[in-house]
Design a protein around this nucleic acid. Structure first.
Lengths: 128, 128
DNA sequence: CGCCTAGTACTAATTTTTTAGTATGAGGCG
DNA sequence: CGCCTCATACTAAAAAATTAGTACTAGGCG
């Protein structure tokens, strides 16, 4: 039996990022942004596809919908940081067996993070 | 049209990690390790499932198979660091729109990376 | 008022990913 | 030699993830 994804799937995340950005957002809001992006890469998208995805996100309790004037408006139930944090944790677990250091090394070596960036983070971190 | 995953899927990665570890590995090698893990969580696994996955990995050219005494032996075509690096990049793109810093912040704030760890990384990084 | 638009609910198809069954063959061994 | 084990090739089913169609409704507006 194939298990369900433990975190947001790719398309679910795509939608959640938009809703976190707008807070709240309607299906049409999300649809238009996504459609625009799809056009860039010559892919299409149906309005009802976004609707279905947002309903799924509501069922999974990532979104909550409120009656509004015309269309439903959706809001995230959890802050972005919380959900993304869980995704980072899942990634670290899955790819690096739970250890964050090797990921850090990848970031430093392959993502142009300078010593200054690290110092900056360390400084912020140190403050608390 | 749903696109294919741009990186290793979950099960593909699980297998690749084992093969990188053994180098080379047979289907049976991988099967036994995975079966053991599955047992822990009361899940089952068929030998042929692993075979199919490894054939897919061969088709995708992540693995190469060599004739051997009894069973085929499989070797990775690319070093672990390269492939995992690509996965990190894909993750950063997908989740953080390509910017590594916010991921770094998550790591520092939620994965018990101390200032010392950062210093250590910065030192290694600085050396080159 | 009747029509068009925007929205929703419901249903379902498609593709990917994961899983496994069946048939077949090679080789050791009693 | 005949059987049993292990491996492979081939086929395909099941589940998840993604995509979309159809029917229906409310509301604006000509």
């Amino acid at each position: 039996m194939r298990p369900r994804s433990a975190t947001l799937t790719e398309q679910e995340l795509e939608i959640m990022k938009i809703v976190w950005d707008r807070e709240p957002a309607t299906v049409r809001d999300v649809f238009e942004i996504l459609l625009e992006r799809r056009k860039q890469e010559s892919r299409s998208l149906a309005y009802t596809t976004v609707m279905t995805m947002m309903k799924i996100l509501e069922q999974k309790e990532y979104l909550r919908k409120d009656e509004s004037d015309r269309a439903f408006v959706y809001r995230p139930t959890q802050p972005k940081g919380t959900v993304i944090g869980a995704m980072v944790r899942e990634f670290v677990n899955r790819v690096f067996n739970g250890s964050a250091e090797p990921l850090l090394v990848h970031l430093v070596e392959e993502h142009n993070l300078s010593k200054d960036d690290l110092d900056e983070i360390a400084r912020i971190r140190g403050k608390q």
